[in-house]
């Protein structure tokens, strides 16, 4: 063996060294460099993601939870997640009586979706009598009320002599279930635009007007009913 090696060491030694180097390159250097490059890319992506998430966390922390809940309550008062028959009926009663109309009958319809707008709604059928001249204002007041409502259909019979009219309205009262998903950690943070801030202020005014119009009743009757 040694004689063989001594005879051919000029070739054996460099071949062994070349083979060893090749093994090191193939099994150590190349895989390590590949891992370095891909991990560097992963590192950069992760750092980018962290900066985005940090910004999102800071933005979320800047919101006052109580103030945000108040704004959500304003929005849900106008466009709730469930059918609120009594609120809608109360508003319609208030609007009609304010303009001199009387409700002769009222019927609750089934839930469905508004054909034109695709929103969920239940309808209220009203038969009213009153000054026909105020009917236009009544319709606009209903659709501008602090509860989302749309006039579905209308029938009017008017009397020329008295100026009074009888109308049958079908009012769609809109509602919408809350969205099922509220976004993941990775989802982008929605921000409130200036237009949305204006809408919130409008809704806040609705709420304050509604609060002012609540009439408080004191105790009625005798202090001592046995006298």
């Amino acid at each position: 063996m040694m004689i063989f090696y001594q005879a051919h060491k000029l070739y054996i030694f460099p071949v062994v060294v070349a083979a060893s180097s090749l093994i090191l390159i193939i099994f150590v250097i190349y895989p390590q460099i590949s891992s370095l490059l891909s991990n560097q890319k992963t590192q950069d992506e992760t750092l980018g993601k962290i900066s985005v998430l940090e910004a999102k966390a800071q933005a979320l922390e800047s919101y006052d939870p109580a103030d945000l809940n108040l704004r959500v309550s304003y929005a849900l008062n106008v466009y709730p997640a469930e059918k609120d028959f009594m609120t809608a009926i109360g508003i319609l009663q208030k609007l009609t009586s304010k303009l001199g109309f009387e409700i002769s009958s009222l019927a609750l319809g089934s839930a469905g979706s508004n054909k034109l707008t695709n929103a969920q709604s239940f309808n209220i059928k009203l038969d009213i009598t009153g000054p026909e001249a105020m009917l236009n204002k009544l319709l606009k007041d209903i659709e501008s009320s602090p509860r989302l409502m749309r006039i579905n259909s209308l029938e009017v019979n008017s009397s020329r002599q008295t100026g009074a009219g009888a109308a049958a309205l079908v009012v769609d009262v809109l509602f919408a279930q809350a969205p099922s998903g509220f976004g993941s950690i990775d989802s982008p943070l929605p921000e409130l635009s200036s237009k949305e801030q204006e809408i919130i202020q409008k809704l806040a005014r609705f709420s304050s007007t509604a609060a002012q119009s609540v009439v408080k009743f004191g105790p009625r009757g005798k202090e001592n009913p046995f006298e």
């Binding site: 466009y79 989302l148 976004g183 809408i199």
Partner: peptide
């Protein structure tokens, strides 16, 4: 969640109001 619900409602309210 509150923010997303608020945005969801405001988008619809803006359409009608």
């Amino acid at each position: 969640a509150s923010l997303l619900l608020l945005k969801n409602r405001l988008a619809a309210i803006d359409q009608y109001l």
